[in-house]
């Protein structure tokens, strides 16, 4: 009974063409509430970022304003030992860069290899098996990786290179394991970039007689280069900021060394050790960790900006 009458109503509407149509936007309260909420979500994350920058900046100002510290000393000397007034940041930066480079030596080739395999070679079934496994790798807590480095990778390195060559805490072991940690991040971003390359390019390449490998290496990868570069840079900033692995396995004393088999302390590792509950709030040591934090923040921020520029600059647009 209902439906016929409904239809009748509609046809009645249409039957009256003279009725004025309301074009004015209807105000929906629920809609505007949701919009406001979503805007607030966005605003909160911006505010939090600003708050972090302010706190980092203020506390590190305290550090640089103190009489014992000068910017020249901070950037111009090579020893970090706040307890005796040595404030050269380079041992910490150097260790961070070492572990990062070692990690990327693992993550870039493996990550790109995995990405190319997944996007160009793998059958859908292989893909659907391999991807979740990689994601499991990404889901392992970093503290587990840390102990993995300390109790598996370090003994392995020591049995290969000799007990006296490789110290118990060393940057190589931490870096290698960090590479494994970053691998899924790099591979999944790289795979997205490769998958975004339109099929017409591949088909054109095959039509020219290229093999699958040639197509992958000389056509698909160059076409996706901006996305791949972004993946690598995101991986690098992840490696710089990684904390637990280096805190456990890399060492606990600032040392300026280029030998990956020696112990050295990274910026994040130092912050963890120093802030482990044993610092006076008003001491220079305490303020120094904010200066290190600011340095870290600047490093990763500039890397992220760089990656945005690269994406923009080298982006190939396909329709």
């Amino acid at each position: 009974m209902y439906i016929p009458s409904y239809r009748a109503a509609i046809s009645a509407e249409y039957a009256k063409p003279t009725t004025a149509v309301k074009l004015k936007k209807k105000v929906r309260i629920s809609e505007s509430v949701i919009q406001t909420l979503l805007f607030l979500c966005g605003a909160i994350s911006v505010l939090i970022t600003l708050g972090i920058v302010v706190v980092l900046g203020r506390e590190s100002l305290l550090f640089f304003a103190s009489e014992e510290v000068t910017l020249a000393k901070f950037l111009g000397t090579f020893k970090w030992q706040p307890a005796i007034g040595e404030f050269g940041i380079w041992p910490l930066v150097n260790a961070t860069l070492m572990t990062t480079v070692i990690a990327m030596l693992v993550a870039i080739p493996l990550g790109l290899g995995v990405a190319i395999f997944l996007s160009e070679y793998a059958t859908p079934k292989q893909r659907s098996t391999l991807k979740p496994i990689l994601e499991v790798l990404a889901g392992i807590p970093t503290v587990v990786y840390g102990y993995f480095a300390l109790t598996f990778m370090t003994p392995l390195l020591r049995s290969i290179f000799g007990q006296n060559m490789v110290e118990v805490y060393n940057t190589a072991s931490a870096g290698l394991v960090m590479g494994i940690l970053i691998l899924p991040l790099v591979s999944s971003m790289a795979e997205d970039a490769l998958a975004a390359v339109p099929n017409s390019l591949r088909e054109a390449s095959y039509a020219m007689g290229a093999t699958k490998l040639e197509t992958a290496v000389s056509v698909v990868v160059p076409a996706a280069i901006s996305g791949l570069a972004a993946a690598v840079i995101i991986g690098v900033s992840r490696a710089i900021g990684e904390t637990m692995i280096v805190a456990l396995a890399a060492g606990a004393g600032p040392a300026f060394t280029f030998n990956p088999f020696k112990a050295a302390e990274t910026m994040t590792g130092h912050i963890v050790r120093i802030s482990g509950g044993d610092l006076s709030y008003d001491s220079l040591d305490y303020n120094s960790i904010f200066a290190i934090g600011l340095m870290l923040f600047l490093l990763t921020l500039s890397l992220n900006l760089l990656s945005r520029r690269i994406v923009k600059r080298f982006r190939e647009v396909y329709e």
């Binding site: 020893k79 030992q81 307890a83 005796i84 040595e86 300390l150 007990q163 006296n164 110290e167 118990v168 805490y169 060492g251 606990a252 004393g253 040392a255 020696k262 112990a263 050790r273 482990g276 509950g277 044993d278």
Partner: peptide, 23 residues
């Protein structure tokens, strides 16, 4: 604190593990 090859940690187990590791 000026010495080379120095590891400092408030966690004595880090020290134990480090000393165990090398003659």
């Amino acid at each position: 604190l000026d010495a080379q090859n120095l590891q400092l940690s408030e966690d004595d187990n880090v020290l134990v593990q480090g000393v165990e590791g090398s003659p």
